[in-house]
Design a protein around this nucleic acid. Structure first.
Lengths: 184, 184
DNA sequence: ATCAGCATGTAAGGCGTTACATGATTCA
DNA sequence: TGAATCATGTAACGCCTTACATGCTGAT
């Protein structure tokens, strides 16, 4: 049943660029990555421990003064594991949108509830889109350097889809509003 | 820490339209809903049991011959629970796309690997889009009946975003191909 | 001084998937 | 007769989130 934990690959991916501590890794994940993948300390630290045992990474103490700090470095075996994963043909892409679930069952309550739910979604997307656009703009300028194309492409995926979401929100609200008031 | 299990709401939502067995519920979820929410027997049956204990649903034996069948019916309390959930302001909408993760770390391997990963994604989306479009076309014609607008809107979300995905795939492949072959 | 941020980690609990176990019926 | 589908359920296991526990440092 081979290990499936994707957080390992996130960490390996990050470490393939630079040495990082668990805390640093968390910050990186909370950046642009967080739009399509999440991580938590309760997730990251155990993964780090396991991968060190498995010799995919090595640990070194880089504490400064009394402040503890452990910096991790990827090994050749770790780089191999990362590449193997990149080359796997299957990838799990899952969308879990509670907003769509609520909309699907919207008939169980008044129309205004569904419209409100779309608006809440819209506000969230608008806020996130702003962020994604700023990432995208920055990255577009440095796309010819090393791996920046890859960062640009993922951010650009976010921008494109979020813009599609907003168009859909408009359409959906119009369709619902055009219906006769029912069950309000 | 209130119960969070969304499968309960999926079941309640389905039962708000018709009485169903656990097996039927699974089939419904595997239809149009599966694009934004999943369910499994190991998930559904325990939820059914808990909700019956909680009086949100009632059970009746509808076995035919020796084939066991338990049909569930939503109670008033169940309908209330469903409405309360619909009216909650917060909704968790999460995207977990391994393809984007792989692309983000694409720099760790050759460009062709990333292009291949985009193609795999594209093929999957194209297949799913066909299905979604057929749902959408069917629903569009009956949108004025009862709750069909809601089904239409969710299917339409799928179509719109999947079309945006495909456009992005094209763009992404072009950008990668325009780069000098590096590290291949 | 105090608060935010740096930094590591563990524990409990929830949720979900997968596989297993069992048995009936329908159709080729 | 055998395979597919109908039908219910449990058990093991894995993964992740949340909360907790602890302590240092730098800025206001």
């Amino acid at each position: 049943m081979a290990r499936e934990r994707k957080i390992d690959m996130v960490i390996l991916g990050l470490l393939s660029h630079e040495d990082l501590s668990g805390y640093d890794i968390k910050k990186r994940i909370d950046g642009a990555i967080s739009f399509f993948w999440k991580g938590s300390f309760g997730n990251i630290y155990p993964a780090l421990k396991d991968m060190e045992s498995g010799s995919l990474i090595t640990k070194s103490d880089t504490s400064v003064g009394g402040r503890e700090k452990l910096t991790y470095h990827i090994t050749e075996a770790g780089k191999e594991a990362l590449k193997n994963w990149l080359q796997e043909e299957q990838a799990s892409n899952e969308l879990k949108y509670e907003t769509l679930l609520k909309l699907f069952f919207g008939g169980a309550d008044s129309k205004s509830v569904s419209i409100r739910n779309i608006e809440i979604f819209e506000e969230q997307i608008e806020a996130d889109l702003k962020l994604l656009k700023s990432y995208c703009d920055t990255l577009e300028k440095v796309m010819d350097e090393e791996d920046h194309v890859y960062y640009y492409l993922t951010a650009s995926f976010g921008v494109d889809t979020y813009e599609a979401y907003l168009k859909w929100c408009d359409k959906a609200k119009k369709i619902l509003n055009s219906k006769e008031a029912q069950g309000v």
